[in-house]
Nucleic acid binder design. Sequence first.
DNA 1: GATACCAGTTTGGTATCCCAAAATGGTATC
DNA 2: GATACCATTTTGGGATACCAAACTGGTATC
Lengths: 221, 221
Amino acid sequence: MSQMQNVERQLREMILALEIGPGERLTERWIEGRFGASRTPVRAALLRLETEGLVGRDGRGWTVSPINLAELEQIAVYREAVEIAALRLTCGQADKSAIDVIEAMLDSCDENTPREEWHRVGMDFHIELARLSGNEFLFRAVRDAMTRLSRARWLEVRDETALGRAWREHRAILAATRLGQADEAARLLSAHIVGSRDRLVTSLANDRRGLRARGFAVVAA
Amino acid sequence: MSQMQNVERQLREMILALEIGPGERLTERWIEGRFGASRTPVRAALLRLETEGLVGRDGRGWTVSPINLAELEQIAVYREAVEIAALRLTCGQADKSAIDVIEAMLDSCDENTPREEWHRVGMDFHIELARLSGNEFLFRAVRDAMTRLSRARWLEVRDETALGRAWREHRAILAATRLGQADEAARLLSAHIVGSRDRLVTSLANDRRGLRARGFAVVAA
DNA sequence: GATACCAGTTTGGTATCCCAAAATGGTATC
DNA sequence: GATACCATTTTGGGATACCAAACTGGTATC
């Protein structure tokens, strides 16, 4: 694999895992040294991550995007639009066997599963569900939205109760989809997204002081 | 303005104006010479345009994305999701004065207006309407979708009848939005998008031979 | 003590160089 | 004439050099 893709992948992982804090300054030279690459692949990676919303320009330099509560609320609205559209397409399809694969993803998580895995599967559920629609644009929209939500969702994943609730809602959405009940599935998905947003925004507002103490920039709604 | 943004903007314009044909090979060295910039800004521009879907990788090199009928159909579905979501948000807003600005855009086009202007305003109508929603993600989704449609829409703009019809539909959508009639506005917008897609796909299927004769790559649905 | 100012350093933007891989084109062979 | 083969050129990926602008830290001035 090329250096370019390596730097991009590794830097993205560090940002998403909060190993580089939201709001933190980035210099091309630091990344260069950190990953043993030259500036050419570093710049390519930064340009990519900029379009993903993970880093942004701060005057002349680069900054890891802060966690932005207003953005989280806007993303929820965006998700409702694209995820429901994708789900309705999927409900209309004859072959529902692919849904079993997604259900199996959910089943793979139990009390012994590490948090990172719950976090990943919780995102992949929505991404893979959108992929089933067969619409590349809806799929990418969902994937990109989940990427932007990823860092904030580390909070949700700390809460056992919230996880159990999310998984129940996921299963209910799959059940309705399997039966082709588009309206019901859409209603459940909408409620899931809105509820998820509410829990996230509440958690973030509560933890804001703690996060700032860790040096994380959290922008209010 | 920096070279980087210049190359990006100029190259995008050449591609959207079909001055560089769909499917055409691009070399970084050619762009370098064409715009008098070095490879660093050229590569930044290519990376950006890649995320916009205007250029793509062809093995090791770069290619101007072909016009893809299957993609046009998927974009229509995507547009229905995001544009209607945005429109519903706008319908729920108290202040409707911004709609007058959009109506004025439509009014600015008459029989003396050049085709390029009709083309631009036809896209900006949808982009600016989405902007009124206040949701940055829905706005960007619509803007990016219109960018991808832009090249194919040169065909629609050649057809007087289609233009008149589109403008009437635009005005009807604005009228319903101004009254806050979300369902009616959504219905009109949906019909407009679907109709527009049908005319576009039909035109493209008919002109496909002619386009190919001009060296343009057109991929079937 | 506060502030204006200046030299030195850092940084992103750009240009250029190097390299391996791929494309090209001509030639020898059958 | 078609084809296999090889030397040459081209090309994108990467590394490095250079520059101007921004930043930093300290100093002189009031």
